[in-house]
Design a protein around this nucleic acid. Structure first.
Length: 306
DNA sequence: CTCGATCCCTGGACGC
DNA sequence: TGCGTCCAGGGATCGA
């Protein structure tokens, strides 16, 4: 499940492997996760992939007009700032392949590159997103999101957390508050900071808030070093798994002993997601009583109307 | 403003 | 072996 460390890992891999390559042509299969498929078919051919970077859980592939053959003339880079925006959702992957390599199942987009390889997007569940964005629309798109958790200052982090009565778990997952945190790293950072996930943001004291910011940053950096967490199927653009799942302290450890205090890790549903925490060292603040994880989900009755 | 519920989607786990 | 059911969760959306 690609969150910030996994997306960073993929982006770095692509920066190393496809930056500078020119796109010759585009092949689309299923397109329901693409904002405007025709635009991609029209705009990508002929463009050169510039830098590949991460923005929250998005990857941004900068696109330049392919350089004119004669060197030296760097003056007019016309559509400055256009980019391909890629979100991996739950199961997305973007990686270069040799053209004679068999196309994997659920491959929905192929970019033929000028060195003969193909940059392929696969996504079984199609929770991902792909969009071609010009400079202006890109800027508008990106400003919807909150601070980068690796760079956010103590003051800004505190301001964003303290101003909301929403539960801290929900705040960590809210991409307009912080960009890039998903379920795994939210649970892990709350465990490390010893904060109960249902605590309202406005009820964290300054010490807790700063502890959380530092825990989150440290965990994300460590996870990036280990190329992310592979729970079921995440692999980077070289097809390699991450290693950080071996360091999880809360996520996926329901019923197991807390590494810090020995209590059994519990799981509840918060913000629509399973939340793992230690009842011993992440005690619920007064008045906070999260429900146990719901065991049944009601079947929709019929829902014929719209 | 914040919440839960629902939906999108498929693979994998599990029960029978 | 195979079928049905549940579950995973990022994000959009809707109604309470």
């Amino acid at each position: 499940m690609p969150e910030l460390p996994e997306v960073e890992t993929v982006a770095r891999g692509l920066q190393a492997s496809v930056a500078g390559r020119r796109v010759l042509s585009v092949l689309l299969r299923k397109t329901d996760f693409i904002d405007d498929p025709a635009l991609i078919e029209r705009e990508l051919p002929g463009k050169r992939i510039g830098r590949v970077e991460r923005y929250g859980k998005f990857m941004l592939l900068e696109l330049d007009e392919a350089a004119p053959a004669a060197g030296g003339e760097e003056s007019s880079r016309s559509p400055r700032g256009a980019a391909l925006l890629v979100h991996l959702g739950m199961t997305g992957n973007l990686a270069p392949h040799f053209a004679d390599q068999q196309t994997e199942k659920h491959t929905h987009v192929c970019f033929l590159l000028d060195d003969g390889r193909e940059l392929r997007y696969t996504d079984a569940r199609r929770f991902g997103r792909m969009a071609y964005l010009s400079g202006e629309t890109l800027a508008a798109e990106l400003q919807r999101f909150g601070a980068d958790p690796l760079e956010v200052s103590r003051e800004e982090f505190a301001a964003r957390i303290a101003s909301s009565r929403a539960r801290i778990k929900a705040l960590l997952l809210d991409q307009t508050v912080l960009r890039g945190v998903g379920n795994i790293y939210a649970d892990e950072s709350l465990w490390r900071a010893r904060i109960h996930p249902a605590t309202p943001g406005s009820r964290l004291n300054p010490q807790q808030t700063e502890r959380l910011r530092k825990a989150l940053k440290a965990i994300l950096l460590r996870a990036i070093q280990m190329r992310g967490s592979t729970i079921s199927d995440f692999v980077d653009s070289n097809g390699e798994s991450g290693e950080y799942q071996q360091h999880h302290r809360a996520y996926g450890r329901e019923g197991r002993k807390c590494y810090r205090c020995g209590s059994r890790i519990e799981r509840v549903t918060l913000a629509g997601r399973s939340s793992h925490f230690c009842p011993g060292c992440q005690p619920a603040p007064r008045g906070v009583r999260p429900r146990k994880k719901t065991t049944k989900r009601k079947r929709p009755v019929i829902s014929s109307k719209r």
